[in-house]
C-alpha cells in the first residue's frame, strides 16, 4: 500500500493543526484532532480505509488515554502519534496481510504508535524553540505599542514553525514508510525474537496508559477498589462502557450526597449555610 503525495500533504496539514502547541487551538486541535481515536477516523478517510484507520486509532488511543502535559513537559507528541504513527501502522498492517481487527494488528499498531510518539517529542521541542523567534518580534511590538502585530505573532508566524516541525516530517516519513514495511518483511520474520517482542510490547503498552491515568486519580489504596469495580463490570459482568459510565455516575451521585451531608449536616442547619460562604 502506497501513500500518495496528496494524501501525505493532507496528513501533514492535520499534523500542524493537531499538535500540542498546535494551530487548531488546544480544544479543537490538540484535544480533538490530536486524539488517536479521532485521528483514526481522519487518517482512515484520507487513506481510503476508514475501518482500518479507526481500529488502529482506537488501539493506540488506550496508551494515550490520559496524555497530560504538566508544565509543558511532554513524554509523547500527539502529532507524531496520530498523523505519522497511525498511517504507518495502517500501511504496515496491510502490508503484512494482517486483519486490522485482530489482536496482532492492534498490538503492532500500539508499538509503532508509541515508538513514533516518543521520538516525536523532538518535534515538540523544535516547534517551541522556533516560536521563540516570533516571540522576540512580539516583545518588540509590545514595547513600541504596535499591538496589532501581536495577533500575527500569536496566530500567524507559528505556521512557519509547523511547516518545519510538523508538515515536512509528516509528509516525508509517511511517504517513505510504505517502503519500510517491505524491508521489515524481508529481514524480520514473524516468528523471530524481534517481531515476537514487538507484538508483546504492543500488548503490554496499554497498561502504561491506564497506569498514567491511575497515578492522577488514585491517592490511597482503597481508591483501587473503584478502579477494580469498573474492571470487574467489564471483565466478568459483561457491562459495556456506556453502562459502566452510567453505573459510575449512579455511585457518584450517592458520593456527592454523602459528602454534602458532611458540609451541611442534616436539615434545620440550612440558615448556617450563608456563614460558610
Amino acid at each position: 500500500m502506497q501513500i500518495s503525495l496528496f494524501q501525505a500533504v493532507l496528513l501533514g496539514l492535520c499534523a500542524c493543526l493537531a499538535s500540542m502547541p498546535g494551530l487548531g487551538g488546544t480544544t479543537f486541535g490538540n484535544y480533538t484532532l490530536g486524539r488517536p481515536l479521532v485521528a483514526g477516523l481522519i487518517v482512515g478517510l484520507i487513506l481510503g480505509d476508514m475501518r482500518s484507520g479507526i481500529i488502529v486509532g482506537a488501539a493506540i488511543q488506550i496508551i494515550y488515554i490520559a496524555l497530560v502535559t504538566p508544565g509543558g513537559t511532554v513524554s509523547a507528541d500527539v502529532r507524531a502519534i496520530s498523523y505519522i504513527g497511525i498511517p504507518l501502522a495502517v500501511v504496515a498492517i496491510k502490508g503484512m496481510g494482517l486483519d486490522p481487527a485482530s489482536k496482532a494488528a492492534q498490538d503492532m499498531a500500539a508499538t509503532l504508535g508509541a515508538a513514533v510518539g516518543t521520538l516525536g517529542t523532538v518535534l515538540f521541542y523544535g516547534t517551541a524553540t522556533i516560536n521563540l523567534l516570533w516571540q522576540h518580534i512580539g516583545w518588540k511590538a509590545v514595547e513600541k505599542g504596535d499591538f496589532k502585530k501581536l495577533y500575527l505573532v500569536d496566530m500567524g508566524l507559528p505556521w512557519i514553525s509547523h511547516l518545519i516541525c510538523s508538515f515536512l516530517p509528516t509528509v516525508i516519513i509517511t511517504m517513505a514508510g510504505a517502503g519500510m514495511v517491505d524491508l521489515m518483511k524481508l529481514y524480520l520474520p514473524m516468528d523471530g525474537i524481534a517481531m515476537k517482542t514487538l507484538f508483546t510490547v504492543g500488548s503490554l503498552l496499554p497498561a502504561v496508559g491506564v497506569a498514567i491515568l491511575l497515578k492522577q486519580v488514585i491517592n490511597k489504596a482503597t481508591d483501587f477498589l473503584t478502579f477494580f469495580f469498573g474492571f470487574i463490570l467489564a471483565s466478568t459482568m459483561g457491562v459495556n462502557l456506556i453502562g459502566a459510565a452510567l453505573l459510575g455516575g449512579f455511585f457518584a451521585v450517592i458520593n456527592y450526597k454523602i459528602q454534602m451531608l458532611k458540609v451541611r449536616p442534616a436539615s434545620g442547619a440550612a440558615y448556617e449555610e450563608e456563614e460558610d460562604i
Binding site: I65, P206, L213, F227, G230, F231, A234, A244, L247, G248
Partner: peptide
C-alpha cells in the same frame, strides 16, 4: 475511575 477500570 470506574470508566477507566472498564476501559482497562
Amino acid at each position: 475511575t470506574v470508566v477507566i477500570g472498564s476501559v482497562a
